[in-house]
Design a protein around this nucleic acid. Structure first.
Lengths: 319, 319
DNA sequence: TTGTATGCGTTATCAT
DNA sequence: ATGATAACGCATACAA
């Protein structure tokens, strides 16, 4: 494996000059440059990137933390990040956490160890205090409202979205509104829960624990949702489903079981995924690809910025 | 940022001893060990992993090449790889290629540059000769039958699967059989095309170019498929669809348009994804998570092995 | 059991 | 415009 030293010898110059040629630095004569270039083409030389990383103290790599990559929400976010990373000559290191804190910590560890220059956390499990400890080692970008903390972020206002959606359904005459989420403990879910509570109080509606259904991530999770609903004495008449995949699954189940949508059950999905368009499911559009793009740029930027992205209500047939 | 040298000074030992403690090597006295450990805990020390990489010539990182991560086939493969990587203390570097050769080359470049120890190519675009050039720099693992070439691989026999499926449909009385694939030029598609040709010849059936529909990757691509089929004079009576997502989309379209399945159109999907179970779509099961696991172990192994995984026909209502 | 010295391959500093 | 040399932080062969 030939290295920069060998090249220097071959071209009859110093390693510095070789490095200059390699990095397109100015101040190197035409003759020496060609001599080096020749040595390179003769030798099948390749930079040892690890040496570059050590020397520079940077790796041009960004970590991406997400619970699972086979969920459309995260897959699209990731796609947006990946596209932008590619165009800016950055590599992505993937941390699939399954919502386990230990794995999120591993990613943070890599930041500390300088294996990645910054970290994008698509869905957080750690406490703020933990994240703040690691801020000294590199940029950390989040997908939620950080409320003035020293992180960059790109997010949608989950609270507002949820409240508006609830009010919309209420105006349509729904008083028994349930919702389906991924996990109960996440930051987004807490915001939704707050919006839900306030909505109920404001409109003098009773709180029903059973109307909140979690562990809804995939199309097939709809089966479980339907089982639960059919089992209830007073099932909800409308369902906000934070994933179009699950919403599509519910619509499919209802078709099989002859439940009329929206007459017997109204459905609103999230993200306006293509499946929602095809199955004509009303959905809250969230610009995931754009968010990914923005997240990436925040990750490589020195400045701390917080960008709210806006949602868009797409009304179709299911509500 | 404190380093190994600082620790040595703090603990009153040599850097070698510190390194020994750090790496759990034997031959270090209890006293010195505790002295070092103390220095570590006092100093908020963290290994600079880049230095380790340079020194060792390895990175404990594996590259994964795939066209897109938001497709269930690749997402599941990736999930399988990621789970195993995690358990074996390896990191994954993602290369999303969109089937562009240049991006695949970038991944190979990283192998050459020693940024990754090995490379898993889930879907190949490069020619064999190109890949073989890079074999000297690290292990390359593929998801297809490599026919004796010096690569490890985990694969299913796409040719056999396709032929069996065609024969199965033929026995059910279908003579006009179409199929939907992702891209026409991939290795799998070539095998399928061969199986298709041979099947037609053997049974004296005419070849219809229009029965082969490509660019079918996502649920929503089904709309385009249906448009094409409805426009044909003699549409196929059965469709092999190499993705359950697309199959599910087609089933959905048919329901909307009142096309009876399987009477008017029989459907067989691929991968036995949960959506297939839910929508009762017949499917060819392929153990993607297991394949991912196996791929990972081949990536970190010194030996070259080739493992064929077996498929399983799941008969449900759509055929 | 411990330490010295050297190597890993590159970039950055500084002098010329 | 060019080059010698230090620095990056760690691992390891070898000596003691």
């Amino acid at each position: 494996m030939t290295n920069i030293k060998d090249l220097a010898r071959m071209a009859g110059v110093s390693v510095t000059t070789v490095s200059r040629v390699l990095n397109n630095h100015p101040y190197v004569s035409k003759e020496k440059r060609t001599a080096v270039l020749e040595a390179i083409s003769e030798s099948n030389y390749e930079q040892n990137i690890n040496a570059v990383h050590l020397s520079k103290g940077k790796t041009q790599m960004i970590g991406v933390v997400l619970p699972f990559s086979d969920h459309p929400y995260f897959a699209l976010l990731l796609k947006g990040i990946a596209k932008e990373a590619l165009e800016n000559n950055y590599k992505l290191v993937l941390f699939q956490t399954d919502y386990m804190e230990s794995r999120e910590l591993e990613a943070l560890q890599m930041l500390k160890q300088k294996q990645i220059d910054s970290l994008i956390i698509c869905s957080r499990t750690c406490e703020w205090s933990v994240l703040e400890e690691y801020l000294q080692y590199g940029t950390i970008v989040l997908c939620e409202n950080v409320n003035g903390k020293e992180f960059s972020s790109t997010f949608v206002n989950q609270y507002t979205i949820f409240l508006r959606t609830l009010e919309f359904l209420f105006q349509k005459g729904h008083e028994k509104i349930g919702y389906c989420i991924g996990r109960k403990t996440g930051p987004s879910s807490k915001l939704r829960a707050r919006a839900y509570q306030e909505f109920l109080e404001k409109n003098n509606l009773p709180f029903q624990e059973k109307y909140i259904i979690d562990q809804c991530n995939y199309f097939e999770d709809a089966e479980k949702v339907m089982d639960m609903i059919l089992y209830m004495d007073t099932p909800p008449t409308a369902l906000i489903v934070t994933s179009d995949q699950v919403a599509a699954g519910i619509v499919t189940c209802c078709q099989k079981q002859g439940i009329k949508i929206p007459e017997e059950l109204a459905i609103i999905g999230f993200h306006n995924e293509p499946i929602a368009k095809m199955m004509e499911i009303s959905s809250i559009e969230i610009p995931l690809l754009d968010m990914g793009k923005h997240l990436f740029h925040q990750a490589i930027s020195k400045d701390i910025t917080n960008k709210e992205m806006f949602f868009h209500f797409i009304e179709r047939g299911t509500v």
